[in-house]
């Protein structure tokens, strides 16, 4: 990595950038960033709520459903009392 050091007496004029670096612009940038962050946080919150609802629905359904058994073939049923 090569670094360069220049010795010069030329200096940019800060006044040229006064408009570009105006405080109002900075506040506006912050407002936009805050809004973006708020929107993102809100989206995450909605997704979290949806996930909780989905998990609760799944859990309730699983508990309420009667247990199902596999169908048993007729041949496999052994009569309890033998026919005379």
């Amino acid at each position: 990595m090569t670094k360069k050091v220049i010795f010069t007496n030329e200096k940019p004029d800060f006044k040229k950038y006064k408009k570009r670096l105006a405080f109002d612009g900075l506040l506006e940038k912050k407002r936009q960033k805050d809004q973006k962050r708020l929107r993102w946080n809100l989206m995450v919150l909605v997704l979290e709520v949806l996930l909780v609802i989905a998990m609760a629905y799944w859990a309730v359904n699983k508990l309420q459903k009667p247990r199902t058994f596999l169908p048993v073939e007729q041949e496999q049923i052994v009569p309890l009392v033998e026919k005379p």
């Binding site: 950038y17 570009r20 900075l26 506040l27 940038k29 960033k33």
Partner: peptide, 30 residues
């Protein structure tokens, strides 16, 4: 703002870049 601008100009040797970095610096500070 002016102090930070010149500090960044010395580090970058690029006026536009120094102005952008000054803006970012103050946004982060805020």
């Amino acid at each position: 703002a002016e102090t930070i601008f010149y500090f960044l100009y010395r580090r970058t040797h690029d006026e536009d870049l120094a102005a952008d970095l000054t803006s970012q610096t103050f946004l982060k500070a805020l």
